[in-house]
């Protein structure tokens, strides 16, 4: 019985070492879908209204399930059309309406990333009054 109890203690010590290892030995880099840049960039102040919005993500997105819309100050969301870029799976191109008003423009987006997770976020840029 003595040996069995020693073994249990060793097993416990092993577990503690593993747990400690989990806690302290961890570092490195992980990734998950997120916007890395856009054109116009988030919070940019623009002299003229842009015709197109480009969204670059840190990993590939599925354009078939991309949804992009304008969040107006009042009223219903305005859906925007978007499409992927065959040469860059991380890029989504969004057509903006001609009548984009001056002031802050809030863009909402919903993406399905290549790891099967969805990402919802917003970005804002401002168009200066003429």
């Amino acid at each position: 019985m003595r040996r069995a109890s020693d073994r249990r203690e060793r097993a416990l010590l092993f577990y503690l070492v593993v747990l400690f290892g989990f806690g302290l030995g961890i570092s490195g880099a992980a990734a998950h879908s997120r916007l890395v840049k856009s054109d116009p960039s988030a919070r940019a102040v623009l002299d003229t209204a842009p015709k197109e919005l480009k969204l670059w993500f840190n990993e590939g997105v599925e354009p078939a399930f991309a949804k992009v819309w304008i969040v107006p100050a009042k009223g219903a969301q305005i859906p925007l059309t978007s499409h992927g870029d065959s040469s860059n799976p991380r890029l989504l191109l969004v057509a903006l309406p001609d009548n984009l008003p001056a002031g802050p423009v809030v863009i909402g987006y919903h993406m399905l990333s290549v790891d099967g997770h969805t990402v919802d976020d917003k970005l804002t840029f401002t168009v200066k009054a003429p």
Partner: peptide, 13 residues
């Protein structure tokens, strides 16, 4: 494999 995946995904204490 659990230690490796934790390393990759959790990143820090």
């Amino acid at each position: 494999s659990g230690v490796l995946l934790t390393w990759f995904l959790v990143r820090n204490f």
